[in-house]
């Protein structure tokens, strides 16, 4: 039995601290998936709270057929999708970076790390959500294709093409703002 299953068993027999151990273990991973998908601090934290509340109330019906982490990531992605559906918008100040980014030095000059991160965030915001999700699960969370397929409820080939397309679009977006792909 792995660590997560032990925590779940202990939680189901009434030990709340076991649930909190799961939260501590996964909180930053969930946060970084959400943050990479929506690009907003405050909202990301709220979504992370919602995700773990769903886990708290749903653990009893978790059947253990998939790994806990896969189930958790599925809840994470779905909760974030719901949020985005309600909001219908991603990063709103996307256009403000467009001009300022090219105003900083020439292509040879090193971009400050903060700027680079900001640019990456904006570029990512222009990658369609279904590609973005696959990309984030792969490169931010480091999941393998099979797990990504389980989380996103799609076929392995679909995961592969979404990741490929996602990277291409990301490259184009960075090029559009920077004149080169960083």
């Amino acid at each position: 039995m792995n660590e997560d299953s032990l925590y779940i068993e202990r939680f189901l027999s009434g030990e709340n601290s076991a649930f909190e151990a799961l939260v501590r273990k996964y909180q930053n991973r969930v946060l970084n998936i959400v943050y990479s998908l929506i690009g907003k601090d405050r909202e990301s934290e709220d979504i992370v709270q919602d995700v773990f509340l769903k886990v708290y109330h749903g653990l009893e019906s978790f059947n253990g057929r998939s790994r806990f982490s896969t189930w958790l990531y599925r809840i994470t992605v779905n909760t974030t999708y719901d949020f985005l559906r309600r909001r219908r918008r991603f990063i709103s100040d996307e256009l403000t970076i467009e001009k300022t980014a090219s105003g900083y030095g020439g292509p040879q000059e090193e971009l400050l790390e903060k700027e680079k991160q900001e640019l990456l965030k904006k570029a990512l915001g222009n990658v369609p959500l279904k590609y973005r999700a696959a990309l984030v699960l792969r490169d931010i969370e480091g999941l393998d294709y099979t797990t990504i397929a389980q989380v996103l409820h799609c076929r392995l080939g679909t995961v592969e093409s979404r990741i490929y397309r996602g990277r291409q679009i990301l490259k184009q977006e960075l090029f559009r703002w920077r004149g080169e792909a960083l």
Binding site: E20, I140, R167, A181
Partner: peptide
């Protein structure tokens, strides 16, 4: 090499870290 650069850049994206007990106490 273009895709590899993008993958590396993206994988090196900054990670957020929550204060240790922040989320647990909010929950």
């Amino acid at each position: 090499s273009g895709l590899l650069r993008i993958k590396r850049l993206f994988a090196a994206k900054e990670r957020k870290v929550l204060p240790a007990d922040y989320l647990v106490s909010r929950l």
